[in-house]
Design a protein around this nucleic acid. Structure first.
Lengths: 174, 174
DNA sequence: GAAGCTTAGTTGAGTCCTCAACTAGGAGTA
DNA sequence: TACTCCTAGTTGAGGACTCAACTAAGCTTC
């Protein structure tokens, strides 16, 4: 190793927390994924796309904005929307002002699929996350998540996301 | 909906917590995955297999036990070990007493790969999880993880895992 | 208006995962 | 022994993701 400093290994307690956290998160995601896939045939990430689209004004969003809002790569979103379009949940439309751009529209079928899937998904989230935690723990979890987010979110992405929300709010207002 | 009861939707506050938590977890996993993949060429799940194997007495484990310890499906582990064997990190060996069985041995190269990857990975975990949290938050996170785990871990799996640990302890004791 | 950078979005190859089907050996019972 | 059931592990197909390469359009600058 030469000049390299010794890595700061995790203490036994830190290891326990890390492994429990890691396991909990994995099981939680697997649980939600399986529920959604089995009951509604929708992968979790596609579900999130549907949710974001359904909340967008006019239920339309530029691909880039959709990628930003779902924290997905453009590539991933492009593949996903291609599949969702094939499923009839989303329709792509060219942007008239910027010919590079593309809009993703939520279709009736997409909204219906979302509405059919939502109750089961919400139940699963309640069952596996909200129910086993006390209100205090929930509050803590919110703080903790915020701290991690702040650490890992690059400033520019943050700014762009805030802008997007502000735009949404403007449109909602009128 | 007919006789179905109304789903218990999430409140605004619950939604905020859930979305932040979800986003934080996604970014955390993506961050660790990218670091490990770039710096060591090892996917996170394979890394976990290496860790578990390295801690096993004799650095050997039956496939089933390895699957249990890594909370992986047998199929996933089988695919993973196939790849890791191709990479020279693991060697499979037939079990003499139960001819259905297979052992997974950690090889020298596998241990070396793990040791090369570990410091960077630990740093990444510290950076993205431990550093941004206060000691109190960390304790809470441990509790929260425990509560989720307890909710989602089936009793039989739990018992099997405990047994495996006890066995390890026995062997360690000599 | 042409050259060169930047942005929007897609594509294809390769990887990891899941699911269901499969092989094969162990275990219990007649 | 033969029958049934169970357990250990593998396999292949197909889906989702990543990465890098690509097309195409906008934007600057001269």
């Amino acid at each position: 190793m030469g000049t390299m400093s010794e890595p700061r290994w995790l203490s036994a307690e830190e290891q326990r927390i890390w492994r429990d956290f890691s396991a909990a998160v994995n099981m939680l995601k697997a649980h939600l994924e399986a529920q959604l896939q089995q009951d509604a045939g929708i992968p979790l990430t596609y579900y999130e796309v549907l949710v974001v689209l359904s909340e967008a004004p006019g239920q339309v969003l530029r691909m880039s904005d959709l990628a930003l809002a779902t924290r997905s790569s453009r590539s991933r979103l492009s593949h996903a929307v291609a599949r969702m379009e094939a499923a009839g949940w989303v329709r792509r439309e060219a942007c008239p002002t910027d010919k590079r751009g593309a809009f993703a529209h939520l279709t009736k079928a997409g909204l219906a699929a979302l509405q059919a899937a939502a109750p089961g998904h919400v139940d699963a989230v309640r069952y596996s996350l909200f129910d086993p935690l006390t209100p205090e723990q929930l509050g803590r979890l919110g703080e903790i998540s915020g701290a991690i987010l702040e650490r890992l979110t690059p400033r520019c992405t943050e700014a762009a996301a805030a802008e997007l929300e502000a735009m949404d709010a403007d449109i909602a207002r009128g």
